[in-house]
Amino acid sequence: MRFSVLASGSTGNAVYVETEEHSFLVDAGLSGKQMEALFAHIGRDMDKLSGLLVTHEHSDHIKGVGVVARKYKLPIYANEKTWNAMNGLIGEIPTEQKFTFDMESVKSFGSLDIESFGVSHDAAEPMFYIFHHEGKKLVLVTDTGYVSDRMKGIIANADMFVFESNHDVQMLRMGRYPWNVKRRILSDVGHVSNEDAAIAMSDVIGDQTKRIYLAHLSLDNNMKDLAKMSVTQTLQSQGIVVGEQVDLFDTDPKIPTALTAV
């Protein structure tokens, strides 16, 4: 199993995951042309995709869903409440391309099992995905205001995590956003901060865990170096040594991460 974080941040999100048999796109939060350019960057063709998995209906996750699905005739998987919330946002989708993927269920595609789980975010029924293949486990978890004990139990001891590290609290509090937006981001249905993300990571990192990709960084309220430093310091305060037990990697709003084996 291999994956690439194609784009991550408030301007658009997309993750690519492949096995020898199947390949999936999780979210398409950029234009169709931008999505095609991202695929070209990692040397993959969108017409080879097996399907498109949607996490929730916010525009930075579904902007290109309709265009991409129609052009490449892709099956789209989302839960019922997300389908209802996407009505009018992604254009007409042929019935034969619409599939329901219930929260906290598993769909199998050959040797690949995809598990869904709920997160705490201000969307209709937001959920993210775990990819299981040949004993390996890849977890995608962003867009959540906090990481509950239930979520930790589901995602624990993955080989690799794509984990939200959205903001530095001080930068957010001192920044230009109006207070209602700040309050939303800081709430239990907003986004996790660098420190809160690292505390959650310390509870789910296990013997199998090798890499964590810091995702959905705010352009206004975070910086890559700051996120990595904050997460490193917090993990080390919890007894986890970055660079020895686990490695941290950046993601970017425009530049895909290298295709990496899980």
Rank of each mutant, 00 (worst) to 15 (best):
R2V: 02
G9S: 01
S10C: 07
V15W: 00
V17K: 02
E18R: 02
E18Y: 04
T19R: 03
E20K: 04
H22R: 11
L25N: 04
V26H: 03
D27C: 11
G29P: 12
K33H: 10
Q34V: 07
F39Y: 06
G43A: 13
K48W: 14
V54T: 07
H56R: 11
E57R: 07
H58S: 14
S59I: 13
S59D: 14
D60V: 06
D60A: 08
D60K: 05
I62N: 07
V67S: 11
K73A: 15
A78R: 03
T82S: 12
N84M: 14
M86H: 09
N87V: 15
I90M: 08
G91H: 06
K98Q: 14
F101V: 11
M103W: 10
M103V: 15
V106M: 06
K107W: 10
I114W: 04
V119P: 03
V119D: 01
S120Q: 09
A124I: 08
H132Q: 10
H132S: 06
K136W: 05
V139S: 04
V141T: 08
T144D: 01
R150N: 09
A158L: 03
S165Y: 00
N166L: 02
R173M: 15
M174F: 15
G175C: 09
Y177S: 09
K182H: 04
S193I: 03
D196T: 09
A200F: 04
A200D: 02
M201D: 05
M201C: 14
D207Q: 13
Q208A: 15
K210V: 04
L217K: 00
K224G: 08
L226V: 12
L226W: 10
M229V: 07
V231T: 05
Q233C: 06
I240L: 12
D247K: 07
F249L: 06
D252F: 05
I255Q: 13
P256N: 03
T257D: 03
A261W: 12
